[in-house]
Simulated assay, not measured.
Amino acid sequence: MTREMVDWDLAVKLGSRIAGEGPTVSRDEAAAVVAELRADAARSTGLVREFTGLDAPDGTAPVLVVDRPGWVQANADGFRTVLAPLVDTLTEKKPPSGVALAVGSKVTGVEVGGLLGFLAGKVLGQFDPFHDPHGRLLLVAPNIVHVEREIGADPTDFRLWVCLHEETHRVQFTAVPWMRDHLFSEVRAIAETVGSSSALEDGLQRVVDALRSSTRGGSLMDVLGSPEQKEIVDRVTGVMSLLEGHADVVMDGVGPSVIPSVETIRGKFNDRRGGVGTLDRLLRRLLGLDAKMAQYRDGATFVRAVVDKVGMTEFNAVWERAENLPSKAEIADPETWVARVL
């Protein structure tokens, strides 16, 4: 069904062309960067385990060092997976005919490709939870080199710093294997509400319009606005706030002991963090969550508040089952979560 809505091959081809190759490096330098990133990712696993107590099984989710076109391809695949339940529901409700033909899969392919091409020049790394069977970690080598040069960071320190953050996300999903299915179930839940929503007079057209407007700051939530749908998005906001906040806490907790220039890196990097950076941020934009960056900062505040009060071991109850995940309201009020779960 999604193939009729978006020409994914065209999206990948255009996105790769827009993304470009990145900074100029020699063949030997490129090989050295790839080797160092792989080693840093492997090293980060133990650092994250020691700090958090989360034990991720070996070999469950691969670490891939990619170029910009590789990132575009990976995220086109991820985007297609995320959209599939929604599009399937809509096309079952109203099989694509006039609308799909009028808009054209090539038109949406161009739009999605343009969005991915823009993002591909900005992403340093990400964990893709939707890749079968257990997700995968992507490290975008040319972008890491570009940013470390741009901010004048020590390359060795900066590469480990990036890997530490992204590896935390890999550990979150592989040490907590139900998390992946939980997030995907929320996507399916949104799809189910769309199938019965009277607000969507023409669901397929509205999804296409939302994809188009996403490059201008619009979102699916501009058209998926029922109370039930907003409740789901609130839950997703809580989970994503937790994941991002937890990764920041790990970075700040582990960083000073292994990255000599971490304070300098953090200060310079925060100045440019407002940009979109990962599939997570792509989903935020699509779901209308990118305007709520304060809630992601609140995620780190939530984690620190709970850990300061009860310790990391007790905090880890958050990973035991979906019912223990904080709501959006609890992210802003950690005491409420402590009282409910602990």
Rank of each mutant, 00 (worst) to 15 (best):
V6W: 06
E228V: 06
S257Q: 12
P142W: 08
E323V: 15
A191S: 13
V249K: 02
A247Y: 04
G109P: 06
H169D: 00
S97E: 13
R149D: 14
I265T: 01
P133Q: 12
M293F: 14
F315T: 03
Q73D: 14
R180N: 08
R149T: 12
L325M: 10
L164Y: 11
G255F: 02
F302M: 00
M293S: 14
G299V: 00
I265S: 02
D58C: 10
E111Q: 07
M221T: 14
R170I: 07
V6A: 04
G217R: 11
V34G: 02
W161Y: 15
V12R: 11
A39S: 09
M293R: 14
R297P: 02
A56H: 08
E228D: 10
W178R: 07
A32D: 08
G70A: 06
N316R: 15
I151G: 00
E166V: 05
A100H: 06
V262N: 03
I18P: 07
A300D: 07
I232N: 03
V233S: 02
P142V: 08
D28V: 09
R212A: 14
A30C: 09
V145Y: 11
F158T: 01
F127C: 00
V208W: 12
G311D: 09
E244R: 00
A339G: 05
A42S: 06
Q229A: 04
M179V: 13
L138F: 14
F118W: 15
G277T: 14
M240N: 07
S185L: 15
H165G: 00
N270P: 06
T215V: 12
M5P: 04
P23A: 05
H146A: 09
G113I: 03
P69V: 09
V208R: 14
V6Y: 01
F79N: 05
D77C: 01
G217D: 07
V208N: 12
T156W: 04
V223L: 06
L119C: 10
T264E: 08
I265H: 00
T215N: 10
